[in-house]
């Protein structure tokens, strides 16, 4: 197993494989925040709040890692009957992110949309849409706005889309990359993509009091973090994705630990949302460079659903990390057990 920037040749998982997976009862507490007007004050308070230092967090991460590795080994070995690849072929890769964990916990009957984009149905290829691209463009626009390079979200989005591969853009170009897709759009489609990204960026732009947040410890967007697992005896590899839209990096202080992850999510929270929220914190801990070093795990994760106006704060501790590790194993089990021979969604 190893931590890396991003697994190669990853295809969105087969979401239909989560059919019928039973939700498991776990106890992770989530609290809402007391809100007044303006609401941006409450979210900023939550991002800046101090948490009591948890001395045993390094042990908790080690425990979660052990449970994860044992559980995945158990699950991947029992899935040996499902489409074992030829010896020369690369092992299929099972990609597990926030979306898969949340949907598996709900026992979702059908899954046609991944966290990264839209699939027109099980087995259909990923395609970029205005909705899939809005987060990417919106975060780049927010960075431009916070740097003072744009006065409004719409200006920032226009700057991002004018040069999607540039310093303010959405990343490198290449086949299938968002930058190339944006550059290829006709003007009306481009206007719609810009409008949807502007709406997304405006929500986040107005959600927090950015002047209060420490700019030196603030990461807007940033690459996803991946924790990868493989075993010689397993029939698949697993990559667990940790994602955060806003990251206030961890800083120990006299009165406690500061730091938080914020995720902006669609719709409204569901049954397994707490575990899904904590995935980012778990991956942060698992991605520590050296196991003996205390992992810089954020003390809290905040989920924000602008569609419904809900905000959840989940504290990170030994119990919640272990529960999240269990949820990842359950998600892997659900994906594997429902995959028919030859029906691997995560195959290369």
């Amino acid at each position: 197993m190893s931590a890396s920037a991003e697994p190669r040749s990853v295809r969105a998982g087969d979401h239909s494989a989560l059919v019928g997976s039973p939700p498991r009862a776990r106890t992770i507490a989530a609290s809402t925040i007391a809100v007044g007007l303006p609401r941006s004050g409450a979210l900023s308070d939550a991002l800046l709040a101090v948490a009591a230092p948890c001395d045993s967090l390094a042990l908790a991460v080690a425990d979660a890692r052990r449970r994860l590795e044992d559980g995945l080994a158990r699950v991947a070995n029992t899935g040996a009957g499902h489409g074992v690849p030829a010896s020369s072929a690369p092992l299929p890769l099972l990609r597990i992110g926030h979306y898969q964990v949340a949907r598996a916990g709900q026992g979702a009957p059908t899954l046609t949309r991944s966290g990264a984009g839209v699939r027109d149905g099980p087995g259909s290829p990923f395609r970029w849409t205005s909705r899939a691209a809005r987060r990417l463009i919106g975060l780049a626009a927010l960075r431009a706005g916070l740097d003072g390079r744009a006065a409004t979200p719409a200006d920032a989005v226009a700057a991002v889309m004018a040069d999607p591969c540039g310093p303010l853009g959405v990343g490198r170009g290449g086949p299938g990359a968002a930058a190339d897709w944006i550059a290829s759009l006709a003007p009306p489609a481009r206007a719609v993509v810009a409008a949807e990204a502007t709406a997304w960026a405006t929500r986040l732009w107005t959600a927090a009091d950015w002047g209060r947040l420490p700019h030196d410890r603030l990461v807007v967007g940033g690459p996803d973090r991946w924790w990868r697992w493989s075993s010689p005896s397993a029939t698949c590899r697993v990559a667990v994705r940790g994602r955060a839209d806003i990251r206030v990096t961890v800083e120990p202080g006299r009165d406690g630990v500061r730091g938080a992850l914020l995720l902006v999510l669609d719709g409204s929270p569901g049954a397994a949302t707490r575990q899904a929220l904590l995935l980012g914190a778990l991956v942060d801990g698992l991605c520590a460079r050296r196991p003996q070093e205390p992992a810089p795990v954020p003390p809290r994760v905040i989920g924000w659903w602008p569609d419904c106006g809900k905000t959840w704060v989940v504290l990170v501790d030994a119990g919640t990390l272990v529960a999240t590790a269990d949820a990842v194993v359950e998600t892997a089990r659900a994906l594997l057990s429902a995959s028919a021979p030859g029906g691997w969604g995560g195959r290369h």
Binding site: A151, P153, E196, A199, T202, T206, S268
Partner: peptide
């Protein structure tokens, strides 16, 4: 005008 912070296609879903 951009200063009015226009947002199109705002979905609201209150459980």
């Amino acid at each position: 005008p951009h200063a009015w912070l226009p947002r199109v296609g705002e979905r609201m879903r209150v459980p």
